[in-house]
Amino acid sequence: MDRPLLIASTLCYLTAVARTVFAVRARIALHGRFNFFAIGAGFLFQTAFLSVRGHSLGRCPLTNLFEVFVFLAWSVALIYLMVGPTYRLSLMGAFTAPLVFVLQTFALLAPIDVPHRVRLSANPWLEFHASISMIAYGAFALSCVAGLMYLVQERQLKTHQLHSIFYHLPPLTNLFAALTRLLWLGFALYTAGLVSGFFTGGPLPRVKMICAFGVWLFYGAILQGRHLRWFAPKRVAALCVLAFSAAISVLWAINFVSQNHPM
């Protein structure tokens, strides 16, 4: 009964995507405000969906892959709504909306909304661990979006081929500053998620732990590399895209491998 809320949310994101595609193709001015409000509306529907689902489960709705994807999409939107206006990167919505749209469309269409075999009891530590990790993934997703924007802008500046999107993208230095902050935010949240995992009380699945530490080390290495100036900004941007692709694959793998272990 909660799916209509998710469909409504997905339609909001689709509107933002369609508007962006139309504006870029028609070469008309692209206003970040429209995307901001479309994503805001989508976020409200997502929140309503998660709330309804959470009430019916009696716990944080992260019990199957479907819910994981929706929660991840919600986290991406949450971080965007927090970060976008703060750093005057509202155009980030033009890049964020497609990502959230794809995540939710996949969740809606794939046969992954399978109820867990046993009704899971509420465990505050486990729920904190899962939800904070998902929000960290949201920050990583946004750093990936900022990385993509940086790479697009950088390439246009290098090749002197300035397309319509060039005039809409933020300056390189601002993008890189936002990307770095998102990386730190995601890393801090992910660290908190990892640490809280040790307090869940249950046995810690080895595969899940290795994967989680792998992601943590990857992002830690990017930040350390940047701190020591080993990586130039362009490389950091490319690594953010790569790291998020790897992290999302790991998230997928974890949920397949540990079917019996709820997040």
């Binding site: 802008q153 500046l157 993208l169 933020p170 300056p171 390189l172 230095t173 601002n174």
Partner: peptide, 8 residues
């Protein structure tokens, strides 16, 4: 314009 796009 280019300077602004690079440095803000």
């Amino acid at each position: 314009d280019l300077a602004v796009k690079i440095f803000g």
